[in-house]
Design a protein around this nucleic acid. Structure first.
Lengths: 284, 284
DNA sequence: TTGCTCCTCACGTCACGTGAGGTGGC
DNA sequence: TTGCTCCTCACGTCACGTGAGGTGGC
């Protein structure tokens, strides 16, 4: 018979742990003195305690261990729980791997450029939402501003004409696969209610596709430098094992982009989003 | 100005989270209505929130994030924290790797042998303790029992003669590097008080070395089958990337092994311990 | 008698999730 | 007036660590 302190030293666990296992019913002392409430253990209980510790080392919770040691568990049940545990651990390792990549790219940035990246990338999801939008290809980047004005004017005029209220700030989509100075395939739209149709014309209603993985940067600054967070997103995607999976989205969070050049665009806030798919080599 | 619900949808966090960050001082709303206590956020707060989320994705605690975003942190401090984070994550990955190995070897055992291993291996540590012991080489395994009796008799007789009390159950050490049927270099000892010396003779006092990694099996059964947990330990060590690092220890937890064959050894409890070192290939 | 060990509460950990119970706003 | 959103508590999570305050045993 061991008192709790001796048994805890033998098994190399704390007395607190033994008391907890007693309370949970995982390991009851062989005997409890009814006057002093002292717990007494016998050496034959060591294998059971070791089994508990071995399960704990595999990452099972005490509740799972209690279930596993309940005696009458079906034959294949242990195998099932082990193989579930296996995939959970594999998931943990992937998560740790992803976190490590984020930390390491930051470290490298500081070492190479003397300072951390200016923008922070966060992953979001987007649901499929109906969008009223109009699209046009800009021949040369010099015409960009002009085309943006025309497109937003067409969009908002059409919506007003049909008494449709935009539900969220406008979104610009850039459909080119790569960065280019010319032939920029651009679309501007805004989320609208479901079950909405428009007569044929430059503005159509279609669905903005879902994306499970949308790398996002909230950008604050001059709209003419918006290319910076875009480059950052592309760089980030490459460094973390993703490939682009759809047009870049630009959410005009600060408000509506007017088409008459009257508002100041030198300090706006928007969010740039890049839909991604994990590359296979990184999934492994 | 966004109400908390709208801002939470925009940033894809829960309102609970925003309230917590407010309370912690991590992200205060731009404005709080003094009559309703409603929190109001502005879009310019999104970059800060995203920074918080990005840090969280790297595994920093909210407290660390608060420190990191406090503005006046020394230049190199960020780098330091990132590189500390890096090693913590690397440690996590190693831990997960070790857990995975344990789960997978169990799964394999069930698949190959139809049942889980009979014994559970747990890792313990042992401190350096003074031990009074006597040692002899057994020429053939047939003489094992006889030598054990003689050794324990010598040990306990000597201790009694010098009025020394053994502090713990006796320990058998097996000094051969590999399993063998002959020339078994065997030692039996018991922990004694420090500062103890004995006159020259078959029993000497020396130190049982420390071990940071001691694979242990609590064995219950016939002493003649004690080879089973020993084999299990050796197998386990191989499967988990360790090499043997000292003599196998056998702790006689059930009590003293008498040397007159009068006690029943067909159902005893002992612990078999194998000192280990991690193999380099697994340390990486 | 003095340490030593044991006992039972009970709080703290970390970042929220999840009600309970009540109140502004369209 | 009715949903909808917001508010403030406050408990629960998981496996213990860490006292506080008090009592047996050698």
């Amino acid at each position: 018979m061991f008192r709790i302190g001796d048994f805890s030293r033998l098994a190399q666990v704390t007395v607190r742990t033994l008391r907890l296992y007693d309370e949970m019913g995982l390991l009851k002392p062989a005997h409890i003195d009814k006057f002093t409430d002292y717990r007494y253990y016998v050496v034959e209980q060591l294998p059971r305690l070791n089994r508990i510790l071995a399960m704990k080392d595999m990452g099972f919770s005490l509740e799972e261990i209690a279930r596993l040691m309940d005696g009458n568990l079906p034959a294949g049940r242990l195998w099932e729980m082990l193989s579930q545990r296996q995939s959970e651990i594999e998931q943990e390792m992937q998560d740790a791997q992803a976190r490590l990549a984020k930390v390491q790219t930051r470290l490298k940035r500081i070492e190479q450029e003397g300072q951390p990246p200016r923008f922070d990338v966060v992953l979001k999801k987007s649901a499929a939402v109906p969008m009223a939008a109009t699209r046009e290809t800009v021949p040369l980047i010099e015409h960009m501003s002009e085309v943006r004005c025309r497109l937003t004017k067409v969009l908002y005029d059409t919506l007003a004409e049909h008494h449709i209220k935009p539900l969220e700030p406008e979104i610009f989509l850039y459909h080119n696969n790569d960065y280019s100075d010319s032939d920029i395939d651009m679309e501007v739209g805004t989320v609208v209610e479901k079950t909405l149709t428009l007569p044929p014309g430059p503005v159509t209603v279609h669905t903005l596709p879902v994306s499970d993985t949308l790398a996002c940067i909230a950008y604050e600054g001059d709209i003419r430098n918006v290319i910076e967070p875009v480059f950052e997103l592309l760089r980030w995607a490459g460094q973390h094992g993703y490939a682009s999976n759809g047009p870049i989205r630009e959410l005009h969070l600060w408000g509506r982009e007017t088409y008459d050049h009257t508002n100041d665009l030198s300090n706006i806030t928007l969010e740039v989003q890049l839909p991604l798919v994990p590359l296979d080599s990184h999934v492994v």
